[in-house]
């Protein structure tokens, strides 16, 4: 299924993006206090796209455009947090693999994440590096795709929780979803 720009913008907006995210109070102070805020640049975006290619189902296409639109639509404070942790992931990858994360194959990227323990820890905005990668990178990307209709249609849901697709779809017969909820 092809992810669209609309998927990305609505997912980001619904999750507090654009103007809706005037305050990202609690977590904003976290990395600022460590002087670790980072501007989201090409390197960070390439790393996020490279991560999405690992954690998104292969049935999804248009990942690069979706991730760029979704992350760019997040409020600046949240982008900064995502970018900071993404940079930490890049540094870690260079240390253990000698190359930048996006330059690895999908299998190697998968291995980096799993060797770090990102798949075995809970997500924690204030936690260890694997926990923060799970929170700000992996789960941020999963949140974006599975609160979009294109992602949720992979499991037969037109208007997933977290997506403002109107209140008609819940009335539909399960085998005849007439409503195009996006």
């Amino acid at each position: 299924m092809e992810l669209t720009r609309r998927d990305a913008i609505i997912a980001a907006f619904a999750g507090g993006g654009v103007t809706a995210f005037a305050t990202f109070g609690q977590t904003e102070g976290l990395l600022q206090s460590r002087n670790e805020t980072t501007e989201l640049g090409d390197a960070e975006m390439r790393t996020l796209v490279a991560t999405a290619e690992v954690i998104y189902p292969s049935a999804i296409s248009g990942i690069e455009t979706f991730v760029e639109n979704y992350i760019s639509a997040l409020p600046p404070s949240q982008q900064g947090l995502v970018a900071s942790v993404t940079d930490e992931l890049r540094s870690h990858t260079r240390n253990v693999r000698g190359r930048d994360f996006p330059n690895l194959s999908i299998g190697e990227r998968n291995s980096v994440l799993r060797t770090m323990g990102v798949d075995r820890v809970g997500s924690d905005a204030y936690g260890t590096l694997p926990e923060r990668v799970r929170y700000y990178v992996v789960n941020q990307l999963l949140y974006g795709v599975y609160t979009s209709p294109t992602g949720s249609r992979l499991v037969g849901i037109q208007n997933p929780v977290g997506h403002p697709g109107g209140y008609e779809s819940y009335q539909n017969h399960p085998e005849n979803p007439q409503s195009d909820a996006d």
Partner: peptide, 30 residues
């Protein structure tokens, strides 16, 4: 079924599934 929550839990339907993650690891992708 809440796709975002399930995906972020690695496909686990709840906390009980999370408990085994420390050994088996979560799923993602396909």
């Amino acid at each position: 079924a809440n796709p975002a929550e399930m995906a972020m839990r690695g496909g686990d339907s709840g906390v009980r599934g999370d408990l085994t993650d420390v050994l088996t690891g979560d799923s993602w992708g396909d």
